[in-house]
Amino acid sequence: MVESKQQWKAWLYLSPAIVLLLIFTVWPIINTVAMAFMEDYSGLAKIGGDTAFRFGIGNFAKVVQNADFQQALINTVLLCVISVPISTILALLIAVALHAIKPLQKALQTIFFLPYVTNSIAIGMVFAAMFNVIGSVGTRRPLISSYGIVNDIIRFFGGNWVNWINSGSEHWANMFVLITYIVWNALPFKILILLGGLTGINKQYYEAAKVDSTPRWRVLTRITVPLLSPMLAYVVITGFIGGFKEYTSIVGIFGESMGPVHAKGSMNTMVGLIYDSLASNNQGRASAAALILFGIILVVTLINLWVSKKHVHY
């Protein structure tokens, strides 16, 4: 039996959270969904927005037909599809290697976790500095004073320097820099989770493999990966969700123009597009874009779960 006094007390304890959640979580869900269907709605009359609107799916149509949206969607999908497998495989190899050593294990583990505690804008600026070329790039006869450390390393091994992020750089080069940064940034979390999973695996499997003198590679693919599959599924799913919400790493490398000097906005992502719509005071369209993003993340997560259901051993 529940005393009514205790009921009353429980709600008192909950009240601060409930009030704030109603204002900043529940209301936004209702309002954003509603605004998505309010065509040409700017909402913010206070800062000169037009509050007139009519209901319809025009916002969605406008967002989808927008060339910027298509570019942003391509960018987002591309960086997810490339960076998630690379970072997952690298993290798996590093975690397995860390698990196989004794001396230095703690020290190396600490080093690999370091990128996690960084400011993504700040370190993005460091990556920009590493790939930046100083001099007149993009002209017919470039006069270079410094190629940047990455190009210096490439030249040291006899390769040709690349215009990574400067004026006139190509989209694939921009993408390469961004994905390198995202992978670097994504490793710590994945290594932490996978290493946690590895320590949970029963040692007997490995001893049995040792008795049968199973080669290392087979041990990895036949024992470690299947037994680690729940953690692998977890890091892949969170990796995709994070990838679809990528935004600040691009601001870090390319600045708020979201692209190299000659092609502003060419590196924009879905989230970037939502904030662009907000900045241009178009609440309706921003809401529609956010719902589309939510839908994409939901579908991708469901696909991931469906795939992992087939392959994950619990």
């Binding site: 204002i23 900043f24 209301w27 936004p28 954003t32 956010a290 939510f294």
Partner: peptide, 19 residues
């Protein structure tokens, strides 16, 4: 509510704090 991307909240919250 943890499943919903933060951007969805941001849009309305921006309007709320402006008002």
């Amino acid at each position: 509510t943890m499943m919903i991307p933060g951007e969805l909240f941001t849009i309305t919250n921006y309007a709320t704090v402006t008002h």
